[in-house]
Amino acid sequence: MYKKKLRGMYISKKVLKYHFDPHEAPRDTYLLCKLQWGETGTPWIHWVKNYRYHAEVKNYYYHAEAYFLEKIFKMRRSNNYVNCSITWYLSWSPCEECCCKIQNFLRKHSHVNIDIHVSRLYYIENEKNRQGLRNLMSLEKVTIAVMEIEDYTHCWKTFIQGDVDDDSWTVDFPSEIAKNRSILKDIFEDLPLIESAMPSVSCSITWVLSTTPCGKCSRKILKFLRAYPNVTLKIYAAKLFKHLDIRNQQGLRNLAMNGVIIRIMNLADYSYCWKTFVAYQHGEDDYWPWSFTSHIFLNWIELRHILLVSRHLEKTLRVKSNAKS
C-alpha cells in the first residue's frame, strides 16, 4: 500500500488540484510523466513523488526526478537504438542536485530527450538552482517551460481516471503563470552565448517549409538563435506537423515567444515560391492552388489556437511591466 501512494498511472483530483496550484507551496514534489518510445504507439503514463524509506543502517530519500530516472526508467527501458521522448509535468522545478542528475542521465542515454513543464519555481532566489536550470536548458535534448493553462487541462484529461473535464480550478492561475514565466525567461537570458566568427550585422532568414518544425527541431532552432542573436527568422509552413502532440505545440509556442514569426502559407505565398524556386517552363507562369483554400484556413485556425496562449502571456507580461514603470 505504501508504494502505491508513491507512484502509479493515475493521480487523484485532490492531489492534482493542490500540488499543481502555483499559489500553494506544498512540501512534496509530484512528477507526472509521458514516455514515448519511437515515433508511433501509445505513450506510457506514470506519476511519482518524493520517495522516503528507512533502513536499519541508513535513511534513504529520493527527489521525484531522481526516483524516476533511477528506478522507473529502468523498468521501462527499451532498445537503446530507439529514440525516447519524455515529457515531465513537475509541481516544483528541479533543484540544483536534480539538474545535475538529469544531465548525467542524458549523457548516458544519448537517445533520450526530456521536455520539462513546471508549475512553480523551487527556491529560485538560490543561485545554485538558477544555474542548474541554465545548465539543463543549454543541453540540446532539454526544454524547460512554465506550465500553461493548456498543460493543466492536458494533465487533468491524461492523469485523472474517468472523470469529466473541470476548468474551474485553474481560473486564477494566469497571473502566477505569467510571473513564473517572466522569472524563468530572465534566468535563461543569462545563458552564455556561443562565440561566433560571423560579423555583427543583422541577418534575416525566411523559411518556406512543407510542415512546421517538430518539438525537437524547435529546440534546435531556439539554441541556434540564442547562439546568433543577430539573426531573425520567419517560418512559412504549408501544414502543421502532428499538431495534436503537445510537444510540437509547445515547441511552436517557444519559438513564437522568442520572436520567431510563424505563418501558414496563403495562395500568394505559393505563387511567390513558384516564381522564385521553380525552374521556368513555358505556359506555367504562375501557381495559385485554389483547391488548397479550405486546408489553408483549417491549418491557420489550428496554428492561431496553438499560439494564442503565448500571445496572451506576452501581453500580460507587457501590461505588468508597464504598470511597474
Rank of each mutant, 00 (worst) to 15 (best):
T143E: 08
G162I: 09
I144P: 02
R311L: 03
E24H: 03
P213M: 00
V57M: 02
G162R: 11
V48Y: 05
K101R: 14
G251I: 15
Y236M: 04
R247H: 03
N59V: 13
T211H: 04
Q36L: 05
K242I: 12
D186W: 08
E127F: 06
I301D: 06
V48W: 09
E39V: 03
S196C: 08
I221G: 04
F173V: 14
H117V: 13
V15L: 15
L244K: 01
L317Y: 00
E39Q: 11
D115L: 03
V82D: 12
R311C: 02
A268H: 07
H109E: 15
W88A: 03
H109D: 12
F105C: 09
S294H: 06
C214N: 04
L193Y: 06
Y287V: 00
T276M: 10
L136C: 11
E140G: 14
W169S: 14
W274M: 03
G259A: 06
E189A: 11
R253H: 05
L317W: 00
Y81C: 05
R7G: 08
V118Q: 01
I205T: 13
P43M: 08
C203F: 01
S271L: 05
D163R: 12
I264Q: 08
Y30K: 01
E125Q: 11
T158Y: 02
M198F: 02
F173T: 11
S291V: 01
A268N: 14
A279Q: 12
G215S: 08
A55W: 12
